Amino acid sequence: MIHRSMQALTGQERTEMIDKLAFTKPWSGILSLCFILAASLAVAQEEESRVPDSYPPGPLGKVVQLGEAMVLDTSKHPLSQPFVGNKLNCTSCHLEGGTDPQAGSFLGTASAYPAWSPRENRVITLEDRVLNCFMRSQNGTRPPVGSEVSVAITTYITWLSTGSKIQMNAEKSLGPRHLRMLNIDWKQANAERGKLLYKTHCLDCHGQDGEGTADGPPVWGNDSYNDGAGLSRVDKLGSWLKVAMPLGDPLLTDQESADIAAYINSHKRPHFKLEEHLPKAERLGEYNSQPSSN
């Protein structure tokens, strides 16, 4: 019974199993109880952080789908393209449109906001977080708060948080499935080793000079993220590579991930200057209402 898949048990069955284990032999009962509790927590998290089965009905569902379309094709979608300054899309980092459970996952993310942001030194909303990515990861201009772009993308991310328990993050502006940093000595990251590894694992999709191909986005140069983006940090990029690359079959060791990150980030990329990425004062925010049909 203990080895039966926890996902196959109902909440009532898990409760009954825990009750029974409380009266078994002490040590075996304790060990089994720990297993059940850990598995139950994992199942609960999985149930709370999964892609919903369907879009909401009516206009809300249409906005969710609009946000999804922009996440998947940010640099070319007619609404988001004017705010993008390179060839990256949201899904370039947030794999599978943010539905990948580890690589920049959007699952459950909305439940962490509003959150404290050490970088901005203030509490920010999910909308703020999304718009800041346009300035850094996409080396573009911050879309207006309340704009169609801003509302649609945050609505999509919120939809991917359906069922998640609200737990605002008081430490960082990160969701419950945020990227886990590798526990290694980052001083040992070696760009020369990374160059060889890049040729083996990355070059076919991202190009000899990091310029990108039809199969992968640019990873350095003017068409990639600027040096204000999170992935411009070797530890952040290395930790992301570990769970994300090669696409569909992440197989790099911790050290290989660190070495490739050191190599990629040793190249030139645009320099981030906040004032160059902010819109004009009159475009910081918008109020978009529609005539009521009632």
Rank of each mutant, 00 (worst) to 15 (best):
A112Q: 02
K195A: 10
G61C: 09
P144M: 06
N222F: 09
K62G: 08
D259T: 02
E48R: 11
Q290F: 00
S293I: 00
K242T: 03
N222C: 00
C202V: 04
E120T: 09
A110V: 05
K187Y: 05
G248F: 11
H267R: 10
P118M: 13
D53V: 07
W220K: 01
E96I: 07
G61E: 08
A69Y: 11
R180F: 06
D235G: 00
M135H: 08
W116E: 07
C34K: 13
A258D: 03
W240S: 07
M1V: 12
E192N: 14
T109N: 08
K187G: 08
Q167G: 00
Y225F: 15
D215E: 12
G11E: 12
N183I: 02
Q208R: 07
N265V: 04
N139D: 14
A115P: 09
K236I: 12
G67A: 09
H178G: 07
T74W: 14
A281Q: 12
S147D: 07
F23V: 10
E127S: 13
F134P: 03
R180L: 10
D100S: 15
A115T: 11
Q138W: 15
P144T: 06
E256A: 04
A39V: 05
P114E: 11
S54F: 14
K25Q: 06
A112R: 09
S111N: 01
A189S: 11
K268A: 13
Q167A: 10
D249H: 13
M168A: 11
L196Q: 15
R269Y: 08
A214T: 09
G98K: 08
